[in-house]
């Protein structure tokens, strides 16, 4: 039995080369993930850690696990992370100020618990359990072996995890959902509303900025025939913020020209 375990535990040269090439890179990336300032860089380094782990899995004959790790975690989960980070802000970096009281001790406590859990798992998988070797484990094919384990021995755990995930997804939806009190104005409704209004002056749309003015930027209002600025031609937000620029400052100084 011991012989077999040794046989299974021996590493072949190409695998060793791969490991010593990938492992330092993965560890460096994992450290970098904690140390870099920008959230997107951190996410990228995490993606790299995932991919290098996947390659190590594949080298250890866990082909399905490696590929699925890339498809599911790198391809879908990390992509969602990136999506959120990009929505939050292009160059927002994390502030190190503690916003929730007692968060740090709680995190340390939970981390220690998690490490303990992993250690106990590792111990249960290695100590006192004879290694049967990859060839034997993959005798019916890697995917088939995994499937038969997953859907017979571990079917309960599998179902519980899926129920947990669905509950989480539903919870997120409930939290994010808001009941609409009135139906949303669609393009069609807006178009009809323009014609139903008292005046048809804006039926063809609002005037664009900068018409008859000296500058056509979005914050320069169009000029009416009498030379006064038309507030309709610029965004209401700009008007409210007072970011409107008068066309006058762009005008040439007519008198000086005449004098010359």
């Amino acid at each position: 039995m011991l012989n077999l375990a040794l046989e299974a535990g021996r590493t072949h040269t190409p695998e060793a080369v791969l490991f010593w090439f990938l492992a330092p890179l993965a560890v460096a990336a994992a450290l970098g993930m904690l140390l870099v300032k920008k959230a997107v860089h951190s996410a990228l380094l995490l993606a790299w850690v995932m991919i290098s782990l996947a390659i190590i899995y594949i080298a250890q004959d866990a082909l399905f696990l490696g590929i699925v790790q890339i498809v599911v975690y790198t391809g879908a989960v990390m992509m969602l992370f990136l999506f959120i980070l990009m929505l939050v802000g292009v160059d927002s970096s994390d502030s190190l100020k503690e916003t929730i009281k007692g968060q740090r001790p709680a995190i340390i406590f939970v981390s220690i618990g998690l490490i303990g859990l992993f250690l106990s798992l590792l111990g249960r998988a290695t100590i006192g359990v004879p290694a049967i070797g990859l060839t034997k484990a993959n005798a019916d094919g890697n995917v088939q072996g995994l499937a038969s384990e997953l859907f017979t021995k571990y079917v309960w755990a599998f179902e519980v995890v899926s129920a947990l995930l669905i509950t989480a997804a539903l919870g997120a939806m409930v939290l994010a959902h808001s009941q609409k009190t009135k139906s949303k104005f669609q393009q069609r409704d807006l178009s009809i509303a323009r014609f139903r209004g008292k005046s048809l002056a804006t039926a063809a749309g609002l005037p664009s900025s900068g018409v008859f003015a000296r500058h056509n930027a979005v914050d320069v209002p169009a000029l009416l025939p009498d030379g006064s600025p038309s507030k309709l031609s610029i965004s209401q937000t700009l008007d409210a913020r007072g970011d409107m620029i008068e066309s006058k400052i762009f005008e040439l100084e007519a008198r000086e020209v005449e004098e010359d």
Binding site: V68, I70, A76
Partner: peptide, 19 residues
């Protein structure tokens, strides 16, 4: 043995380029 999934994996990493 999981060739088609491998193609999917490559494609899903490729999107990182665009994003």
């Amino acid at each position: 043995p999981v060739g088609v999934l491998y193609v999917l994996a490559a494609a899903s990493v490729g999107v990182y380029g665009i994003v």
